[in-house]
Amino acid sequence: MKSQKSLKLADQQFQNISKHLKILNECGIIDFNQIGRERLCLIQPQKLIPAFLWIKQYNKLWEDRIDSFENYINQIQNKKNE
């Protein structure tokens, strides 16, 4: 996947965010590519997939728990109505 957008940063701007970029690079989310004086920074979106999977799984846990709560309430109600 290639991003169509590109952004040029002055040295100072790059300094300001270099710490963030470094962490993202350590996580494999961005790659650096030096071309002459320019340092290209490429996003690797596929590296985010595990994070999204984790979030999905985590959300599902809560959805399941609330479903389980609903089932339980329905059980109580049915008993009452018997």
């Binding site: 952004l7 940063l9 965010i17 989310i29 999204f52």
Partner: peptide, 16 residues
């Protein structure tokens, strides 16, 4: 990670 990307975007936005 998701929010880190968002923050990065925000920072990039304010800088540019």
């Amino acid at each position: 990670w998701g929010s880190a990307i968002e923050r990065l975007e925000t920072i990039l936005g304010t800088l540019t």
